[in-house]
Write a protein that binds this DNA or RNA. Structure first.
Length: 381
RNA sequence: GGGCGCUUCGCAUAGCGGCAAUUGCAUCUGGCUGUAGACCAGACGUCUUUAUGACUACGGGGGUUCGAGUCCCUCAGCGCCCA
């Protein structure tokens, strides 16, 4: 990829651009810092935006420094009170990191990454040093952060430890001697805090690159696992294909730019999205799987045929009511739900719509049970 | 330390003693369509002999009452204000 694309495609802002360009021109190998959260080891396309950018730098011979924020994770973040996020043990952090880097390896050369756990230095930081560190920032400066301001205005609480996050992240930059820090636009403030601290200590300031936050499949909120609008890097080809196809039309261009190296081939949204889905599945699986997924999609979704590969389940009984069948096979969570689905016309047996909840189903050979549009199950006695 | 208030479906909300309980979002089903979205219709505690049915539910426990989400006491969690 051309060097000028490096700082433009899929990039929102570069601070300081001139400085960074000079550094590139000098041929110096830079240390590029990226923060990772070990609490959520499942990566999705949203993460891939930053990772793909890092990959470009890696290909130029720069060093990617991954900071695993295990220290903060182990303290637990009470901001999200609804979840009462549990503290992670050392083993859990390690296990998460392992799955994390396995997925990162789909994009970056994992062997060349420098991995640092921030517990390495925070564990040793005593109170006196922490106070000294905090003295290097003013409360005003910290409260400038957008979400703090908003929460203060609206009366939502801001826990006092939260103001430490930007400070800790800034400290990370000092320790790993970052030349550049890369992150989503939501990280801008924290990354700039790194610059502040470096300047304050008379160190060279890191440059900051922000990348866009990918909007999720719903077309509204940023992609995240908890919202459920995500496309996971480890999703099965068919599922991945389907999810890409369900992306809002307005996002097609954005997805091409941020998630692939390709360009949108055509104006037609359906065709463009098929190409997009095929490209993305090809990236995280392979071309063969992508082609198969496309066939499957056309067959099942476009032509409404039965999928080629359906899960099977054996039942021990010879006959039972339709409601019980849904319950037994786990296609419905309760009898009431099963009844509801049947009454609303969402249940088919061998392609025939069923409307009678109490009818008895005789099990002999194989029958195909369909619930809703996507759930299929092959049942044998 | 003193005063006030909050806790109801995944989230958010209504609820001045008759409530399986409002509304929005989310979710699910059906319709429409180029997949999705948007849009339209419906559902959204469980169970059954499907009924003006039974049971379980409005933070926990106790009480008043024919009857309590609603009133009283108490415990817990959370928040606001004054000092």
């Amino acid at each position: 990829m051309a060097q000028n694309d490096l700082l433009t495609r899929g990039v929102v802002e570069v601070i300081e651009k001139d400085h960074l360009e000079k550094a590139f021109a000098s041929g110096k190998k830079l240390r590029i810092k990226y923060g990772a959260d070990p609490t959520a080891p499942d990566l999705h396309l949203g993460h891939s935006v930053a990772l793909r950018k890092l990959k470009e730098f890696q290909d130029q011979g720069h060093t990617i420094v991954f900071i695993i924020g295990d220290y903060t994770a182990r303290i637990g973040d009470p901001t999200d009170r609804s979840k009462a996020r549990p503290m992670l043990s050392e083993q859990e952090v390690k296990a998460n990191a392992k799955t994390y880097f396995k997925q990162v390896g789909k994009i970056l050369n994992a062997k060349k990454i420098e991995i640092r756990y921030n517990s390495e230095w925070f564990r040793k930081l005593d109170l006196a040093s922490l106070i000294k560190l905090m003295a290097e920032f003013t409360v005003q400066r910290i409260l400038e952060r957008d979400d703090f301001t908003k929460r203060l205005k609206s009366g939502t609480e801001v826990h006092s430890h939260e103001v430490l996050y930007p400070i800790m992240q800034a400290y990370d930059s000092i320790i790993v001697e970052a030349d550049v820090e890369l992150g989503g636009t939501d990280q801008k403030f924290n990354m700039l805090a790194g610059r502040d601290l470096q300047r304050h200590r008379g160190l060279p300031q890191q440059d900051v690159i922000t990348v866009p936050l990918l909007v999720g499949t719903d077309g509204v909120k940023k992609m995240s696992k908890s919202v459920g609008n995500y496309i996971g890097l480890t999703d099965e080809p068919n599922e991945m294909f389907r999810k890409v196809m369900s992306v809002n039309d307005d996002l097609i261009d954005q997805y091409f730019t941020l998630c692939t190296d390709a360009k949108r081939p055509t104006e037609d949204p359906r065709e463009a999205k098929l190409a997009l889905a095929k490209t993305i599945v090809g990236m995280y699986h392979d071309a063969k799987a992508a082609a198969a997924a496309e066939d499957e999609f056309v067959r099942v979704v476009s032509n409404k045929e039965i999928p080629s590969d359906i899960e099977r389940k054996k039942l021990k009984v010879k006959s039972l009511s339709l409601t019980d069948l849904l319950l037994e096979t786990g296609m419905a969570a309760s009898k009431s739900e099963a009844r509801r689905l049947i009454e609303q016309g969402g249940v088919k047996l061998d392609g025939e719509r069923q409307t009678e909840p109490m009818r008895t189903v005789a099990l002999g050979g194989e029958i195909v049970l369909q619930v809703g549009k996507h759930k299929f199950l092959k049942i044998s006695a």
